[in-house]
Design a protein around this nucleic acid. Sequence first.
DNA 1: ATCTTCTTGTGAAGCCTTTCACAAGCCGGT
DNA 2: ACCGGCTTGTGAAAGGCTTCACAAGAAGAT
Lengths: 214, 214
Amino acid sequence: MTTRRISESTVRRLSRYLRLLRDLTTQREEVVSSQELAARSGTTAAQVRKDLSVFGSFGQRGRGYPVPELERTLERILGLEKKWCVVLVGAGKIGTALLGYSDLADRGFDVVAAFDTDTDKIGSNLFGVRVFPVSDLNEVVRARGVEVAIIATPPEAAQDTARLLEQAGVRGILNFAPVGLEVSEEVSVRTMDVALELEALSFALSSRANGGRA
Amino acid sequence: MTTRRISESTVRRLSRYLRLLRDLTTQREEVVSSQELAARSGTTAAQVRKDLSVFGSFGQRGRGYPVPELERTLERILGLEKKWCVVLVGAGKIGTALLGYSDLADRGFDVVAAFDTDTDKIGSNLFGVRVFPVSDLNEVVRARGVEVAIIATPPEAAQDTARLLEQAGVRGILNFAPVGLEVSEEVSVRTMDVALELEALSFALSSRANGGRA
DNA sequence: ATCTTCTTGTGAAGCCTTTCACAAGCCGGT
DNA sequence: ACCGGCTTGTGAAAGGCTTCACAAGAAGAT
């Protein structure tokens, strides 16, 4: 079986298409063209068709793509048919903000537990999520079959946390600490770094101001 | 003047190199090789050299790169010599969490004001940042010469906010609302979307589990 | 002074992604 | 039944990014 590698950028676009399709579903739209998907997600019609064609043929020539079917197809492709059990490590400001972010549950990511080292927080409930001591991490993760974790610890603690999670069997990590994490190849990591994004903005603004040369 | 276009990925790597160089500076390291920079930021030595060579020659053959100089050079390239005035729109959970994130100030991004529509929040102080009504946005942004804004509003309000900011003269937007923003070409936008990143993780885990086919 | 060992800077090659362009095919109107 | 207008799916071309490979050059040992 020829396993084609799907690029990072393709996956991101698929995710955007899916969000758009959900909007269209609530608006009771039945079909959508690659042209419209492209316009609304900031890419080109050819790109949309290419992205989808990697996985099969889902459209109808002359009409477009059936919205509900394509929505289900993208969910299947992205692995969103199942609910994912997620744990949060670090119940500080960012961690707590994420728990309050209801979008996650709507999108199929159930946060089943949070962990922290602060004894004041342990035992409390944040938006319905119980906070455990980090020493319980291994047990809870194994007991609930958690596969995805969010790291929202201070940067110093992030690497140790990653290793704990890996040893507990977690296979995907969303990292909010501004450090690169070393983990085995079995584990997928994505780091979200506010400062890095601001620096990229800074670069764009500066180079635009003086014609491309920094 | 030949203005070469610098790719997204190059800028992100430059930002990572810079973070690394800051660590090395505090450890009093004097020189660093492309090999070490690469290993510590998850890329290859050739890539590091290529990235830097776009902007000039900063190293010394046989030795490596002088840490403090390269640090200053990268700051200059990324436009971080000046402090950037930033405003935050939307003082909800995520917005507040960001204000408490001290890294921003350390990295040269001064949040000078926050805006919200909630009358309970208006007038209050969050981590030393005053919350104004959104109706004051234009005035404050112009008065303080703000160039960068962070949108942390609910998704429904994000597009209107973006337009307000654009009209007030903001040229860079970091968007935490999970929607694409339409703005003029003059304005740079970067969207950070937690759900999208989790979906990308979901894809990676699912396709790994069954050999690449979703 | 010369030799060995590093390491940079960079053209060229290789690989991957995006864009182009068009045949195939659907739909509604006549 | 046929025609005209759209839209998909896809090979081929173009464009961009990464890796390779090596000459040029620096530092330290002998």
